[in-house]
Measured scan of single mutants.
Amino acid sequence: SKTSNTIRVFLPNKQRTVVNVRNGMSLHDCLMKALKVRG
């Protein structure tokens, strides 16, 4: 089974995003990807 960790990230202006960290990806990469999608 694939394991994925879901991390809630609290952003300024009362924004919130959820990042799924996959195996083999660093938290930083996942964060940058999530913020790019939002931006």
Score class of each variant (00 low, 15 high):
S1G: 13
S1H: 14
S1I: 06
S1P: 15
S1N: 14
K2M: 11
K2Q: 15
K2V: 05
K2E: 09
K2N: 14
T3N: 08
T3P: 13
T3I: 11
S4T: 15
S4V: 05
N5K: 10
N5T: 09
N5V: 15
N5D: 10
N5H: 11
T6P: 07
T6M: 11
T6K: 06
T6S: 12
T6V: 15
I7F: 09
I7L: 12
I7S: 00
I7P: 03
R8G: 02
R8S: 04
V9M: 02
F10H: 14
F10V: 03
F10T: 05
F10C: 05
L11Q: 00
L11P: 00
L11V: 04
P12S: 01
P12M: 05
P12A: 02
N13I: 08
N13C: 06
N13K: 11
N13H: 04
K14R: 09
K14T: 07
K14M: 10
K14S: 05
K14E: 08
K14N: 14
Q15K: 02
Q15E: 15
Q15P: 01
Q15L: 02
R16L: 06
R16C: 07
R16S: 06
R16P: 01
R16H: 11
T17F: 05
T17R: 05
T17N: 02
T17P: 00
V18D: 01
V18E: 03
V18G: 03
V18I: 13
V18L: 04
V18T: 14
V19D: 00
V19E: 05
V19L: 10
V19A: 10
V19G: 01
N20S: 08
N20E: 06
N20D: 06
V21E: 00
V21F: 13
V21L: 07
V21S: 06
R22F: 03
R22H: 12
R22L: 14
R22S: 08
R22P: 14
R22C: 09
N23I: 08
N23Y: 12
N23C: 15
N23D: 12
N23H: 09
G24D: 07
G24V: 15
G24S: 14
G24Y: 05
M25V: 13
M25I: 10
S26D: 02
S26I: 15
L27K: 03
H28Y: 11
H28R: 12
H28P: 01
H28C: 14
H28L: 10
H28D: 13
H28Q: 14
D29Y: 10
D29A: 09
D29E: 07
C30F: 04
C30W: 00
C30S: 12
C30Y: 03
L31P: 00
L31T: 05
L31Q: 00
M32S: 05
M32R: 07
M32V: 11
M32K: 08
K33N: 04
K33L: 05
K33G: 02
K33Q: 03
A34P: 07
L35P: 00
L35V: 06
L35M: 12
K36S: 06
K36I: 10
K36Q: 11
K36D: 06
K36N: 15
K36R: 09
V37M: 13
V37W: 06
R38Y: 05
R38S: 01
R38H: 01
R38G: 00
G39S: 13
G39C: 09
G39V: 04
G39A: 09
G39E: 04
